[in-house]
């Protein structure tokens, strides 16, 4: 096919230049600018099986337990890096989950021979004191496992799961719609008595969010 075209082109338009071979073809080159990142359908995750959901639930539960335990630490904020709006002292801080800057090591007994000697002081092990005996391990109670079982139960009725899936989709769609609204909602509009940043925001929105604040504000 292409060879035939080539021959014909040569014969018909001798000296017609380089366009020759294609002159008779119905090729219409597209000169428009191609998109740098043409739209592509992202691969969609297939629905989670029951076993997978259980596994994820267990993993999450485990992580939650570690986070609540003595080993989880967060980096302290450096001086001068505080957020002037969100880091003000509040009454609600009283209720806030305490996050450790340093692990709480004296809460449990250790098997000393597994640690290098230079860390013994950190472990709180002295050769003389026998106080280490009194320490006990911190074991999370069974109750923490239970919420996950509830998840399993909920999972069992397929109807509920299906409904949930539908809900999720809806929620996602809505979520996409209010993407920017969400932004404001979480960065500034904390439910506190005084929100300084709101003062600087556009006045129109203040009223809207004022309602919201009142809803939650009562409980202080």
């Amino acid at each position: 096919m292409s060879r035939g075209g080539f021959g014909r082109g040569r014969g018909g338009f001798s000296g017609a230049g380089r366009g020759g071979p294609f002159s008779n073809d119905d090729l219409k080159p597209d000169y428009s600018v191609t998109e740098l990142f043409p739209p592509q359908a992202p691969p969609v995750q297939s629905a989670l099986s029951k076993e997978e959901r259980l596994m994820v639930a267990r993993w999450r539960g485990q992580r939650e337990k570690v986070h609540n335990g003595p080993m989880y630490t967060v980096m302290g904020r450096k001086r001068g890096m505080e957020d002037p709006f969100n880091d003000i002292a509040r009454y609600s801080a009283k209720y806030r989950k305490v996050e450790r800057r340093a692990p709480k090591l004296d809460a449990r007994p250790y098997v000393a021979e597994f640690f290098p000697a230079e860390l013994y002081a950190t472990l709180g092990i002295d050769e003389k004191t026998a106080s280490t005996k009194t320490k006990t391990l911190l074991i999370s109670a069974l109750d923490t496992l239970n919420p996950l079982d509830e998840l399993a139960d909920a999972d069992e009725d397929a109807a509920a799961a299906a409904a949930e899936a539908g809900e999720k989709k809806d929620a996602d769609a809505e979520d996409a719609a209010e993407e920017d609204e969400e932004e404001d909602h979480f960065s500034d509009d904390e439910d506190d008595d005084y929100n300084a940043e709101r003062y600087f925001e556009s006045e129109g929105e203040v009223e809207d969010y004022g309602d919201d604040g009142d809803d939650g504000g009562d409980y202080y």
Binding site: K65, M71, P109, T136, L137, L138, I139, S140, A141
Partner: peptide, 21 residues
């Protein structure tokens, strides 16, 4: 789950802790 949290533990310690928690 507890063993994963604790890393490693002596059995006696584990049992003692169990009694309390």
């Amino acid at each position: 789950s507890n063993m994963l949290q604790l890393g490693h533990a002596r059995v006696s310690d584990f049992l003692a802790a169990y009694g309390i928690s």
